[in-house]
Amino acid sequence: MEVREVELPGIGMKFSFETAEGETLCVVIHKTGRREIYRFLPGQDTPDSVIELSDKEARELGAILIGTHFQPDVHDTARLVMKELTIEWLKVSSESPLAGKTIQENRVRKLTGATIIALFGPTKKVLNPGPETRIEAGDTVVVIGEQPQIEQFKDRFALH
């Protein structure tokens, strides 16, 4: 997915991309902090609808969209790429060496440099898990690190 980035002097920044359905979504971040989301139907050069958000609302919506509050099943693996860091949601299968051991036993940070920042299971939700926390098959781990560290983490523990 390619995101086009254009500076609008006096207004702010514009980000746009095309969705799989052929619609174009445009996000304008105003200098004032206001956000607008424009939806263009395929082949149209004027928007079909506009959503306006305050800075606070936009952040809340952003958090909802990346799955802070609820991770749907399809998002067993999700990824958030920021400038320096990547956050990835990964489902732990029974083949993974992670399953059935604690974070310490797996020596996660020592071996890969990445850090597990949250752990979700069918019945549990652990934020900032300690070294004694046990990971079971079927859990989803949220891991943060630089891109190569995350890759190493996935290789090492057979996660996809």
Binding site: I11, S16, D45, T46
Partner: peptide, 23 residues
């Protein structure tokens, strides 16, 4: 520039392609 930016914001035209040229 300032009046134009204001009009564009007020009329919700920030995302339109021609706005890139206008500003």
């Amino acid at each position: 520039t300032s009046i134009i930016a204001r009009l564009i914001i007020d009329f919700r035209r920030s995302a339109l392609l021609e706005t890139e040229y206008a500003v």
